[in-house]
């Protein structure tokens, strides 16, 4: 089953735990920052509600108190998820609650595609043995993780999800925009559209947008590079330098989008989306030895 990737033939529990901590902390922070926007749906016209995804059968908004309660429970479960407390409950609970909160907000007319990958990642992390190390559960247990838990397969699945998401995004550009998306003015018009929309909504447009729109010749190569990065995502499954190169390229793509359009995909921009591709547990001894060196060098 691991023939499709060279990543993580095996993995210690700490590797999966590191991804749990990063993704959990990201999701809790994201929800905390976005809570005003999430709670603002209580003031929306109920006619604007149309359930999507797991809430597709919901034909009217839930009571305001339920939205507040769900957000509160999600935040509490998220903290427990991140620190690995009662993970058999908090893992699936946080994954499910995050999915519900994000789906409910998306049911008000605007799908926020940057929430897809964290929601999917949390489902895998919440159902896997992600708290066998670096968790309150492990500390309480006081002995090694139970044998037989697979910590590599969930990591490979998380990586596959990232790769598929990017490939699908690349295919979408060719499917809906055609080759013209690369060779034509599509990117230029998207940049101009985003800047104008921001301006009409009382916000300052991205400072580099005008420069990019004025230099139309530079945009087809950028469009081609964007599609290449998205469709080239499977090379990350090779590991090693191919993975590093792709992750760096994908990050640059998001940084460029943020700079030119003020459209921020925080999960990849903060590198959390790419965490499953790496042997993160190796960072800990490295950081420890560096800290000891710094401590020894201090007067």
């Amino acid at each position: 089953m691991t023939r499709w990737t060279r990543l993580h033939p095996t993995a210690p529990p700490e590797r999966l735990a590191a991804v749990r901590i990063l993704s959990g902390a990201y999701a809790v922070g994201y929800l905390a920052v976005r809570s005003p926007a999430i709670l603002a749906v209580r003031d929306r016209d109920p006619a604007a509600f149309s359930g999507v995804g797991v809430l597709a059968t919901l034909d009217r908004p839930v009571p305001d108190a339920a939205v507040v309660a769900l957000l509160a429970v999600t935040l509490v479960a998220g903290v427990a998820f991140t620190v690995g407390a009662a993970f058999r409950v908090s893992g699936p609970a946080f994954a499910g609650c995050f999915l519900l909160v994000a789906t409910y907000r998306s049911s008000w007319g605007q799908l926020l595609h940057f929430e897809n990958l964290p929601a999917l990642h949390l489902l895998v992390l919440g159902l896997a043995a992600s708290a066998d190390a670096w968790s309150l559960d492990a500390r309480r247990r006081g002995r090694p993780a139970p044998s037989g838990h697979d910590h590599a397969a969930p990591l490979r699945l998380l990586c596959l999800m990232v790769v598929l998401a990017y490939v699908i995004a690349g295919l979408a550009k060719l499917r809906y925009g055609g080759l013209d998306w690369i060779t034509g003015d599509a990117l230029r018009h998207h940049l101009a559209y985003s800047a104008t929309r921001l301006e009409l909504l009382g916000e300052a447009p991205p400072p580099w947008a005008a420069t990019a729109v004025a230099n139309a010749w530079a945009l087809p190569p950028l469009a081609a590079a964007s599609v290449l990065v998205e469709l080239g995502a499977p090379v990350a499954l090779l590991g090693g330098r191919a993975r590093d190169l792709w992750v760096g390229s994908a990050w640059l793509l998001h940084a460029g989008i943020a700079a030119l359009m003020f459209v921020v995909f925080p999960y990849p921009l903060l590198l959390v989306a790419f965490a499953p591709f790496f042997e993160l547990e190796r960072l800990v001894p490295l950081l420890r030895s560096r800290r000891m060196r710094l401590g020894a060098a201090a007067p």
């Binding site: 595609h113 897809n116 929601a119 699908i168």
Partner: peptide
Amino acid sequence: SFPLSTYPM
């Protein structure tokens, strides 16, 4: 849809 998407943005 959400969270399964065609990523059409």
